[in-house]
Amino acid sequence: MSLPKLHVAVLMGGWSSERPVSLTSGEGVAKALESRGHTVTRIDMGRDVALRLAEAKPDVVFNALHGTPGEDGTVQGMMDLMGLAYTHSGLATSVIAIDKELTKQALVPHGIPMPGGRVVPTHELFERDPLPRPYVLKPVNEGSSVGVAIVTDDGNYGSPISRDSVGPWQEFDELLAEPFIRGKELTCAVLAGPDGPRALLVTELKPKSGFYDFDAKYTDGMTDHICPAEIPDEVTEACKDIALRAHRLLGCRGTSRSDFRWDDEQYVEGQGADGLFLLEVNTQPGMTPLSLVPEQARKLGMSYEDLVEAIVADALAGKSGATAIATTGGGKG
């Protein structure tokens, strides 16, 4: 791939709980672009972000923000109004994909397997369990496993959960409760290209303690990445198929990463991928040294710099990311 020399504004930082990750992603992207001869303006997003983008007048914006408001459609809408080309998904897709319940409503009717459960007001947790234990509680619209709690029979939260025990119920007015799915943590990246999006590889994530939470994701040495995952071929293909279908159904652009749980005790050879559930679709995956999309691309012979340029090239192609769901149907495409 050969891109003309561009002026790229890299949006990073912001004020979400994922700010440190975004700063690392953004700096990596900026250095990669500079190494290829592009001019880069780094923007640590503040409330004056529109003014700073207007002053910079970039050819394209690389959106390296994580969490709100950089990943939930807010910044995307602003850039749409400003007429700026930008990487990753558009407004409609971002609004849906950041919200785990909206994502289910969009994908499950098209045959994508996702866990059941429901959104519960936090105060109800102090009266009764919303689901039989074990179950998972997570914020509806946070990423990077921020605010996730696994509630078990022998957990220290109490039964019902105590108001005084540390957990996401102290920070959020409502939480998504889902059945806990035992087994393996898997993830699959999708990357856009001139011939359309393609699924990359499947990685198994094996935290050395606890579960794959924020610290396990972003602390070197706390999680083993098995890439490609040592799982049956039919499960690998099911992950790649679901990730690609979800990417298309939601109208994702650039790159996305789909996270799964697979209950391998349900597996019967030759009978598909029973026990496999999509948990969420991340429309702006991390680009840090420990991030999964660059790792999968590298395993396929694509350098970090090539990956960054591929994402920029897709943004410049001007493909709309606002046609999510309604026009895609339920086929595999």
Rank of each mutant, 00 (worst) to 15 (best):
A64H: 11
P197Y: 06
E101F: 14
R128E: 13
D173C: 05
I96M: 02
Q76F: 01
K319M: 12
D274H: 14
S35A: 14
S165F: 07
L279W: 10
E204M: 07
R133W: 15
T39Q: 02
C239H: 08
P289Q: 09
F62L: 01
T74N: 09
V146M: 10
G70C: 03
E305I: 09
P121E: 14
V120H: 08
V293L: 06
E171H: 15
R133T: 08
G196E: 08
A177W: 12
E71F: 03
G330L: 15
R298W: 10
P121D: 11
G116T: 00
D259P: 13
W262L: 03
Y267F: 13
M114P: 02
D80P: 11
L3V: 13
G254A: 05
V29N: 11
R182T: 10
G70N: 02
A97R: 02
Q271H: 13
V235F: 05
A317F: 03
A189C: 06
E309R: 05
P4H: 02
Q284W: 08
H7I: 00
S165P: 06
P294L: 06
D48G: 13
V119D: 14
G331V: 09
R198E: 15
C227H: 09
A322H: 08
H66M: 01
A192D: 08
D274R: 15
G251D: 02
E127S: 12
G116W: 03
A313Q: 07
T87F: 02
G193P: 12
I150F: 08
I161A: 00
L200Q: 04
E265F: 14
P121L: 14
L292F: 00
K138Y: 15
S256T: 03
L91M: 14
G117Y: 07
V148T: 11
N141L: 09
A243E: 10
V29E: 07
E230M: 12
A30C: 05
S209I: 14
V140Y: 11
V29K: 04
G251R: 00
S258T: 15
E295Y: 10
Q105H: 15
P285K: 11
A9V: 03
R163F: 07
M78W: 01
F180C: 10
S258M: 14
T41M: 02
G272C: 04
Q170M: 13
G46R: 13
T203F: 08
A97F: 04
T87V: 01
G13L: 03
A92Q: 10
R182I: 12
P139D: 01
V60R: 01
A92I: 10
Y218P: 06
L81W: 01
L33V: 04
A50W: 03
E34V: 06
K184E: 09
I231Y: 04
A56H: 12
E280N: 03
T236N: 11
S2C: 11
G254L: 03
R42K: 13
R52E: 09
P228E: 11
A30M: 03
